[in-house]
Simulated scan of single mutants.
Amino acid sequence: MLGDDTVRDRLWRKAGQQRGYFTAAQAMGAGYSYQAQHFHVQRRNWIRVDRGIYRFREYQDLPSFDTDNLVRWFLWSKEKAIASHVTALTVHDLGTANPAEVHLTVPPGFRQKDPALVLHRAPLRADEIERHEGFRVTTPVRAIVECAVVGVDQDVLDSAVAEALGRGMSSSRRLLHAAQELGPRAELAVERAIRAELS
């Protein structure tokens, strides 16, 4: 019953949509004072992940996913950062990309930084973004063309295009149109990848 909802229940429900992560502001919204938050961190009920970002301890014992860290960065950015470029290719399981760093697209005026991240500043349209559990990511088509525009290795691009076409995630025409919107460099690289797939 909703009337029996505890403070922990409210926060647990919210964190459950975010792979166990939550912010200090979300904890406050659920009813935890800053003093109570400090207590739970001290008792190791909550694991401090970053400034103002925590995770329920129980999630350490649950199976993890490769994308768990993207939830953390989404919260770190105050829900402004979108997983993109080669990171988005790995989310969509496209091609051979295996990035050492996390690539995120943020709004042009975004000021936060972290050495673990490669930040790309660009506006994104709603139809270029997909929502996943606890984070957002650029669509397969956008991920491919934004990789093309920054000069990702052609072999990586070729493999991503081949899989996107093979799995029916896009058509050649749609990929080329999206690449044209980002300029000649993206268009040429995507054209090459499509030719490699068709040859």
Rank of each mutant, 00 (worst) to 15 (best):
H103D: 02
H38G: 01
D68E: 06
E58T: 11
I53G: 13
A81K: 11
H92C: 06
P99G: 01
V91E: 08
R43C: 00
R51S: 14
R72F: 09
P63Y: 11
T87G: 00
N69R: 12
W46V: 02
Q37I: 02
P63N: 14
D68M: 10
S84V: 04
Q42W: 00
V71G: 08
N98Q: 04
L89R: 05
L62C: 10
R44H: 11
V41R: 04
D93V: 04
F74M: 13
V91W: 09
I47Y: 03
A97I: 06
V102P: 01
V86L: 05
N98T: 03
L75M: 12
F39V: 06
Q42V: 07
V49C: 14
A36I: 00
L70F: 15
L62P: 11
P99I: 00
T87F: 08
N69F: 10
F74I: 12
R43P: 00
Y59Q: 13
N69V: 14
G95V: 07
W46Y: 07
S64M: 08
T87D: 03
L75N: 07
G52I: 02
W73A: 09
T96P: 09
A36C: 00
K78D: 10
F65Q: 15
H85F: 12
E58L: 14
V91L: 06
F39W: 07
T96N: 11
T87L: 04
G95D: 06
L94A: 01
D50E: 15
T96M: 10
R51C: 03
Y59V: 15
Q60F: 10
V71H: 08
R51A: 02
L94I: 02
S77H: 11
H85D: 11
Q37D: 01
D66R: 12
S77C: 09
L70D: 05
Q60A: 15
H40I: 00
W46E: 03
R51D: 04
R43K: 05
V91T: 13
V71I: 13
S77D: 07
V102G: 06
Y59L: 15
W46D: 08
E101P: 00
V41T: 01
K80Q: 11
A36K: 00
V49T: 07
N69W: 08
A88K: 08
T90D: 03
K78S: 15
F65A: 15
H38V: 02
H103W: 12
D93A: 12
V86S: 08
V91S: 05
T67Q: 13
H85N: 08
D66Q: 14
N98I: 01
L94H: 06
F39R: 13
I82Y: 10
H103Y: 14
